[in-house]
Amino acid sequence: MTQLENLCLWNNSLIAYRGKTMFLRDWVTSDICYVKDLYENNIFLPFHRICERVGHKPTRLFEYGAIRTAIASLFLKMNDNGIQAMKVMDYQKISTFKPRQFRKLMVDAYQTETIAVSFWKRKMGIEINKDIWQIASNASKEVRLRLLHWKITHNIYPTNIILYKMGIAESISCTHCTEETDYIEHFFYYCRKISKVWNLVEEAFFTACSTKKFMLMCGMPYLA
């Protein structure tokens, strides 16, 4: 408990319910801001004690359950060595923060690396940096292309291997060739049917690059 007692409850990615952080203004104004504020003698406060401090309203039981579940999930994620790389923030006047100010402070203090970074490094040996993240918004003004690029970069494009885990697809195999597992790199590049498209693109590119006009535009010497 000592490792967690000073951990901030709100807008904290470590304390999330169904993958989303929480911020309850009436809890904050009632001075419930840290994990330690929910415990007494190492026992989680019962629901009626919370209502005595925060007040009653129709959604209070849901809020209580969500916070209790989020903290319980955090305990389950702890390993034998305790919480790794956990930063503790100490705000003296947290109740005076506006939601936007509070969120910025939390984001700045709890910078985390998205799973996609380790995925592409492991898969392709590619280091994802700030410039690569911005390609999605800088490469095109077309919203659908930006969204496609964003999904690919984050490895959340709905290939069959993802859809199968969600119970939507019947198989993890590629829909087009039915031979290989439908990983994201297979779907967009290695599939034997998709690779034909890339071969045509490559041929067209090199054909264009070999023309006199293109070479002169690039300042390259042209030998007839």
Rank of each mutant, 00 (worst) to 15 (best):
D90I: 11
Y91A: 00
Q92S: 09
Q92K: 09
K93A: 10
K93N: 14
I94N: 07
I94A: 14
I94L: 15
S95Y: 08
T96Q: 11
T96P: 01
T96F: 04
F97L: 07
P99I: 08
R100D: 12
R100Y: 04
Q101S: 10
Q101T: 03
F102R: 00
F102Q: 01
R103D: 05
R103H: 05
K104F: 13
M106F: 04
V107N: 01
V107R: 00
D108H: 05
A109T: 01
A109R: 01
Y110I: 09
Y110C: 04
Y110D: 05
Q111V: 14
Q111G: 04
Q111F: 02
T112R: 15
E113G: 00
E113I: 11
T114Q: 05
A116P: 00
V117F: 01
S118P: 04
S118T: 15
F119I: 15
F119W: 06
W120I: 11
W120R: 08
R122D: 15
R122L: 13
K123I: 10
K123R: 15
K123D: 12
G125P: 10
G125Q: 09
G125E: 12
G125S: 13
G125W: 09
I126P: 13
E127H: 14
K130E: 15
D131P: 02
D131G: 08
I132K: 00
W133V: 11
